[in-house]
Amino acid sequence: MQIEKAILATITTNKQKVTAGASIFICETSEEMEKVAANLEAILDGISHALSDELYIIVKH
């Protein structure tokens, strides 16, 4: 089986919401989170998806 989609990174302001898995980036503020997500999106060639206000994931499609 070939996995087509993968979570490349997780960006959050709330440490409680995430555990291991993809690389986790913990940010202080939501502005910082957006900035990190925008950078990671460009670097990883994935799309930033918002799961909630405090949790973003970068997914490779």
Partner: peptide
């Protein structure tokens, strides 16, 4: 689709 970044 789901677009996370406000900028996008």
């Amino acid at each position: 689709m789901n677009i996370g970044l406000p900028e996008r």
